[in-house]
Design a binder for these strands. Sequence first.
DNA 1: TACTTACTTAAAGTTTACTTTAAGGCTAAC
DNA 2: GTTAGCCTTAAAGTAAACTTTAAGTAAGTA
Lengths: 151, 151
Amino acid sequence: MTYSIGQVAKRLGLTTHTLRYYDKEGLLPSVHKSSSGLRIFTEKDLEWLIIIECLKGCGMHLKDIKHYIDMCMQGDSTIAERLAMFKKQKEHLALQMEQLQAHMEKIDYKIAYYTEAAKRGSIDAVQYNKCLMKEKERIFGQTIKKLTEEA
Amino acid sequence: MTYSIGQVAKRLGLTTHTLRYYDKEGLLPSVHKSSSGLRIFTEKDLEWLIIIECLKGCGMHLKDIKHYIDMCMQGDSTIAERLAMFKKQKEHLALQMEQLQAHMEKIDYKIAYYTEAAKRGSIDAVQYNKCLMKEKERIFGQTIKKLTEEA
DNA sequence: TACTTACTTAAAGTTTACTTTAAGGCTAAC
DNA sequence: GTTAGCCTTAAAGTAAACTTTAAGTAAGTA
């Protein structure tokens, strides 16, 4: 089973321009061309693209993704480096997840805050909800206290 | 307790340039100036900055963050819209976390893959580990199968 | 045959969020 | 009195990942 550039683009939510751009940048070394010059994508190529999207989604730059792909092309001598790269990305990803979790706490607080404000009819009145004020202290207190202590 | 621009920059991991840039862009309407023109940051301003960092970390653009801040300045008439904004951000954030989780699965697979390759001494030999091949199917199979079916 | 989809090169344009440069001036602390 | 840190405006520069434009060609499908 093979796919045209248009089919792949549609399914992965990219444009054909982007796929050609990736190809030009050396990110798709395994994509072959038909006798008439059309790009032919195999399932292996789709796997590559899925990994590219994954690494991009982790915040890796295209040039670093290219470096990884170059290593793959080089063969078994780069196995250790590739393993190290993914281990590093895992740590990075774990950090990102922690940060998103911290953001989520703040956003949940703000939702509670504005829900209370909507109920009471004004921002000023929210302070009378002691429970919310404690929550605020819990979420903002740490960061701000650190600032105060070291100032 | 108040802080200078330099103190705030240091603590929040920003530069003084960036803080002045934010100020210029209207993101820090509550920062006042001393008689000699120095910016004076209060704890309230730090809270603002923490929220700005949070929204930025969620992928929101500065101009949308500014819109939020403008709403805050407008007062109680915008409470409903602000609540809606945070609810939307929560959904967005939940999606992001799901995606990171999906990325993590792929990265864990790659770590297992290259660990096995390192152990066996070659990429080619990895395919003999049936367990890994099943894992690969589980992780890549779905996405690729969807492609195949609808092609 | 007409239409859709694909191909090429090469350069210019876009967006976001800064960062840098320039050039000069004020003020608080040591 | 000098140094460190702060201030101003205004414009130019940077990086990343595309996107767009131009201009022409070729192959496969209804």
